[in-house]
């Protein structure tokens, strides 16, 4: 079987759930090899969880210039590995960096590329891969065959149920020493400030997301209260972000994050098409809105027509009571 290269997404060595999903998917296509770009002190922590989800090999990329420059050096690393390993496919997270590496790698290696897939499976006779995408605000499902070159696919978080590999085999580790050409070092990250940790799960990987919109009037207290009762991430509509009530990193929708949790709660959000584009594939959808005619109610599994300032706290208290 051929190797399948997987880019690891991690925060200081803590591997993100989306990577476990990629490795789970990669096992269907071949032997997963994790490509880990990390400082030496973070690499050890990552290795164990990578093995747990099926990585048979870890390619360690320690060269600081890969971390200190935008996208281009990572394309060099992957192009080098694709050529050296004859990989069957490359799987990357569907976030800005992942999609951009995918696009450039495809151009450079003459390969088919699909971004934002929600599923990936081997094609017949091992000739490439078959992907599923959800497009136009989730209203269409597109199935594609990618069989040119080394198929490059980015996969949306929460698309593939994570399964541990269950094997005992030790992970083979290899340091990758790729010489990065000068021109790839043109866009330099001169400053980086980590976002403040909220203690809540990450927006795109959370099992539950509670979002607030213009209806909060700027007070996200009730939204956060319900989110914390459910152990959920907090999201926001663009109206709430534009008003400066919540940071842009939490925006759900076409120009924000695209989420696909088990449960999505929209509070004080009307349900504009651009918002739906980012949440319509959620498994269960719940809305709380004063206006019975709000389009968001067309999507819901359960809805409450009412004031979020009374409904959300009451729900949160009832949930706390049930949890005991």
């Amino acid at each position: 079987m051929s190797e399948v290269l997987v880019l690891v997404d991690h925060v200081e060595g803590a591997v993100r759930k989306s990577t476990a999903e990629l490795l789970t998917a990669a096992r269907r296509l071949g032997e997963p090899s994790a490509v880990l770009v990390a400082a030496p002190e973070h690499a050890d922590a990552a290795r164990e969880s990578l093995g747990r989800y099926g990585a048979e090999k870890v390619y360690r990329v320690e060269a600081p210039e890969v971390r200190e420059h935008l996208v281009a050096p990572l394309v060099d690393v992957f192009a080098n590995l694709v050529e050296r390993t004859g990989a069957a496919a490359v799987l990357l997270p569907s976030d800005p960096d992942g999609n951009e590496v995918a696009g450039r790698l495809a151009v450079r290696t003459g390969s088919g590329v699909i971004t934002d897939a929600v599923d990936v499976q081997p094609a017949e006779d091992g000739a490439g891969v078959r992907t599923v995408q959800s497009v136009f605000a989730g209203s269409y499902t597109v199935t594609s065959l990618v069989n040119r070159g080394t198929p490059v696919v980015t996969l949306k978080p929460n698309s593939v149920p994570v399964e541990e590999a269950g094997g005992e085999a030790a992970v083979v580790e290899e340091a990758v020493d790729v010489s990065i050409p000068e021109e790839s070092l043109a866009a330099r990250i001169v400053q980086r400030s980590e976002k403040q940790q909220t203690g809540r799960p990450g927006l795109t990987e959370a099992a539950i997301v509670v979002s607030g919109g213009r209806g909060t009037g700027g007070d996200f207290g009730p939204v956060e209260q319900l989110a914390d009762a459910l152990g959920a991430a907090v999201g926001a509509s663009r109206a709430a972000v534009d008003a400066g009530w919540y940071p842009h990193a939490y925006q759900v929708g076409q120009t924000g994050a695209s989420v696909s949790p088990q449960l999505y709660v929209a509070a004080g959000i009307s349900g504009a098409i651009q918002h739906r584009a980012g949440m319509q594939t959620s498994k269960t959808i719940v809305a709380v809105n004063k206006d019975a005619e709000a389009p968001i109610f067309e999507l819901v599994d359960f809805g409450v027509v009412g004031d979020l300032f009374t409904v959300l706290p009451q729900a949160a208290e009832e949930i706390q009571r049930r949890k005991g």
């Binding site: 209203s139 990618v146 109610f297």
Partner: peptide
């Protein structure tokens, strides 16, 4: 470089209890 094999309209979500 990729081939679209099928495009299917998703059935609209059924509205639950409001």
């Amino acid at each position: 470089w990729t081939t679209v094999e099928s495009v299917e309209a998703r059935p609209p979500r059924e509205q639950g209890e409001v």
